[in-house]
Structure formats: structure tokens, C-alpha cells
Design a protein around this nucleic acid. Structure first.
Length: 180
DNA sequence: GTCCCGATTCTA
DNA sequence: AGAATCGGGACT
């Protein structure tokens, strides 16, 4: 059960994306096993928030790998990414789903229901208590209360598809997930 | 300042 | 299929 170091995230995004599957995301008292992710890679990816250069919103994507990029969307949800690649290259992995592990009761309370606690990027942020104001730019590699660890779990049946909810870049199958 | 739209979710 | 709901980014 070892925490992932910055060197894990500071690599080609598609490698990080695939290897994040099965790892455990810890946000304070709650944790969940990552089972669905998407890659957003650089200025040539038309679906990437950074495709038109740096803005106040996406500046974290241009920074050091291993930080959280949390943004606000659709007027009511937040979505969380983990920044990848070297500094100056804007890329990140969107967290789309986790299987609840620790803190399920708190997650249920936050979500206001008993099921489907964290199977979606917006739901996951609600369940784990992540929001732009509190978590955008948070470092997952500084021995804080937010981090990712590897407990040896090996996901089976990894599949890919086009990314969800976008209208461009659909030719890339950069959504990765597994079914347990 | 104005305007349009979004890496979603829930309900009908 | 449609509503909810508002910040961000492009543009005037």
C-alpha cells in the first residue's frame, strides 16, 4: 500500500490514465477505487480545456504533475482531474468513477441517497467532498490528506471508448474503465 | 458588459 | 426528452 509519487504522474498521459485504474484515491476521510477515467492531452486535443492556451481556469493543467485540477461545470457540478506530464505541457486525467471504500456513510450523507454514490465525475466530487474552491491545485504528492495509493489490486477487463459529454475529439478512445 | 454553452445529473 | 443553474471564455 504505497502512495504514488510525482514520478508516477509525470509521464505520458495515456500511460498514467491506464495505470490509475484500480488505484485508490484518498480525499480526507473518504476513499474510493478508481474504475473510470479519461485522458485530456495538450493543445492538439480539441476537447482539452487547455486547447486554446492558458486561462485562469486551466492554469493548474500547465503546472506540476500530481496536482488536482477541479473545475465547475453546468452551473452545479464539479469535476476533478489529476495533472500529468512535465510542467508547461497541459494534460490531465479526468476522474469519472470510483468504487466507494472508506467513508461510505459520509458519502451517502453528502449525496443524499444510498446508491450510485460516485459513478460519474460530478457524483464523485460530491461524494468525496471535492470542489473547485477547496481542492483546485491541491498537491497529491506532498504527504497531505489527499493522495493516491496502490494496494496491489490489478483491474481486469479494461476497456476503452470515446470520451463522454464532448462534441469534438470523438475519434480518440481515451476513456478507460473496467467492470468488476 | 453581454451572450452562449458546458469533460452532468436527475426526473419524467 | 428536458430541466436545473451559473461560471468561464469569446467577443463587442
Amino acid at each position: 500500500m504505497k502512495k504514488l509519487k510525482r514520478s508516477f504522474f509525470k509521464r505520458p498521459t495515456l500511460e498514467v490514465t491506464k495505470e490509475l485504474l484500480g488505484k485508490v484515491l484518498v480525499i480526507g476521510n473518504c476513499s474510493g477505487r478508481i474504475n473510470e477515467v479519461e485522458a485530456y492531452i495538450g493543445q492538439n486535443d480539441p476537447a482539452c480545456h487547455a486547447c486554446n492556451g492558458m486561462t485562469k481556469r486551466n492554469e493548474v493543467m500547465f503546472g506540476e504533475a500530481g496536482h488536482l485540477y477541479v473545475y465547475f461545470c453546468y452551473g452545479m457540478y464539479h469535476c476533478a482531474n489529476i495533472v500529468t506530464e512535465k510542467k508547461g505541457f497541459p494534460a490531465a486525467v479526468l476522474l469519472r468513477g470510483v468504487e466507494p471504500l472508506d467513508g461510505k456513510e459520509q458519502m451517502k450523507k453528502r449525496r443524499g441517497r444510498g446508491g450510485h454514490l460516485s459513478d460519474g465525475p460530478g457524483k464523485l466530487c460530491i461524494a468525496l467532498g471535492m470542489a473547485k474552491k477547496s481542492h483546485n491545485g491541491v498537491d497529491l504528492c506532498n504527504n497531505g490528506k489527499c493522495y493516491v495509493y496502490d494496494d496491489g489490486f490489478i483491474p481486469k477487463n479494461i476497456k476503452s471508448s470515446p470520451r463522454i459529454g464532448i462534441k469534438v475529439g470523438l475519434n480518440k478512445k481515451w476513456r478507460l474503465f473496467y467492470q468488476s
